[in-house]
Design a protein around this nucleic acid. Structure first.
Lengths: 154, 154
DNA sequence: TACTGATAGTCAGCATACTGAGCAATATCC
DNA sequence: GGATATTGCTCAGTATGCTGACTATCAGTA
């Protein structure tokens, strides 16, 4: 059997594991209780006010069945609102609350710090190269997962 | 807010998401039902007969509370055995079964194919470089997660 | 040997992720 | 305009992954 360190799948899992741990630690140090997933969802809601759940899921490549629970928790924490769409009665429009906006603003330094920490073993140039290669591999594999990235509809 | 594509944490999540989807698809095409996590555990049990659960967890960087369920499922599928250790009555010794050995052997092509597919957007040289950078970042962050990689005790 | 601390494993609880099914509403096609 | 297909969302079930707590056992020491 190949060494685990030769398996991109194993390395992907490990890097993601560390990335999540670093994110949670930094955010908790800053006095907040928000997961990476919840953060990405909230930031995307703020950037696209009134979007529906499927669009949100596409913008951050979450499964539509996962996004339901994530939004539940954002709403429960008072950071976002979910209300029926006027144009399509199947859909829910999402909005960030003032509290959500405040949280996003205050949490940003911790989030950026986390991104630096998870690359701390690499030089700036290596970090850039890692991100470039990940972006390239992800772009080629986008359609292979059930939850591919999707552009917003206009 | 920064673009998601500038966040290593987001890229880590996406790459891992695709890696798991590719693995599961290849393995299912080959006629098997084994997750990436179960595969890594089974392969490590085979390579280290009689090891205990904590050692196994350390070798593949799983949390000790996660490994319990993973082994439950391997045992339930008849691929591994869990029996009390003779030297330490707290510990369980793990062994691969003949069926587990057969499964590992037959599944290997699918696993290797999956590793290639998840890098299909990259040249061979780029794939190597991505793995090198991931290994380096992971090594620097190993202690930051609750389930760091651990060498086997002798 | 009795006490203390560490270790192996499990469990309950929570948060992603996914499969597959189902409901309600909208879009499309004849 | 009515049948059909598609879409938005939710739910049940399964599998990681983690926190924190607990039991049983072991190791070291006074």
């Amino acid at each position: 059997m190949k060494d685990n360190n030769e398996m991109p799948g194993h390395l992907a899992r490990r890097f993601q594991q560390i990335a999540v741990a670093v994110f949670l630690a930094e955010v908790e140090d800053a006095g907040f209780d928000l997961t990476p997933v919840q953060y990405a969802a909230l930031a995307t809601i703020k950037a696209n006010p009134g979007l529906d759940q499927v669009t949100l899921a596409g913008l951050i490549a979450y499964d539509r069945t996962t996004i339901t629970g994530v939004i539940d928790r954002l709403v429960q924490k008072g950071l976002a609102e979910r209300r029926p769409s006027s144009r399509d009665r199947r859909a829910r429009e999402l909005e960030i609350t003032d509290e959500g906006r405040r949280t996003l603003r205050k949490i940003t330094p911790a989030v950026e710090s986390a991104q630096r920490i998870m690359l701390r073993g690499l030089s700036a140039k290596e970090g850039e190269e890692l991100m470039r290669l990940l972006r390239k591999a992800i772009a080629a594999g986008n359609e292979l997962s059930r939850a591919p990235l999707r552009e917003a509809q206009l």
